[in-house]
């Protein structure tokens, strides 16, 4: 086990049933996408209950109309990962707004056929991120907020 794998495994609670698989995938993903990092945090479910889960949080590079943007995302891994898909969100900064659409709801939750049809071992984090980058490149999930306009200038007669 590499040093990175060892430190990720230490972070990952024993409630995770497939720790070695999960650690290996995360290690690979963060070696490929260096702006994503593993974090433990409380995830709040729809029923209000919360659980400490590992997430991959950071940005993915998305090319849109000739420019590359670092789109902020958070991928939550359930303790049954990789047998259940991650729960994925875009995380707009205060300077951004969510663009809802087929793949994004008003909370920033990401919906993709890849997640819906998730099946280990054909589906994995690296494949998911690649799909996100393609889909977001066609339809960005966030846009910059318009800069604040100065008040309408008073017309002096």
């Amino acid at each position: 086990m590499t040093l990175t794998e060892t430190s990720i495994k230490k972070m990952l609670p024993t409630q995770y049933k497939y720790r070695d698989l999960t650690v290996r995938e995360i290690t690979y993903v963060i070696s490929q996408y260096k702006d994503l990092k593993p974090l433990m945090d409380a995830y709040v479910f729809n029923d209000g209950s919360s659980r400490d889960l590992m997430s991959l949080t950071g940005t993915v590079p998305v090319s849109y109309r000739g420019n590359t943007y670092n789109i902020p995302v958070c991928l939550w891994l359930l303790d049954t990962y990789p047998y259940n898909p991650p729960i994925c969100f875009v995380k707009p900064t205060s300077a951004m707004m969510i663009k809802t659409g087929k793949h994004i709801d008003a909370n920033g939750k990401i919906y993709l056929p890849y997640l819906h049809e998730w099946k280990h071992p054909q589906s994995d984090l690296i494949g998911l991120i690649q799909v996100m980058i393609v889909v977001f490149g066609e339809e960005p999930p966030v846009f910059s907020r318009p800069t604040t306009q100065p008040p309408f200038p008073a017309f002096q007669a």
């Binding site: 950071g58 951004m96 960005p140 846009f143």
Partner: peptide, 14 residues
Amino acid sequence: LNGGAVPSAPPTYT
């Protein structure tokens, strides 16, 4: 682990 890139998004189109 690193600090990560600064998040960015395309400009709003009108």
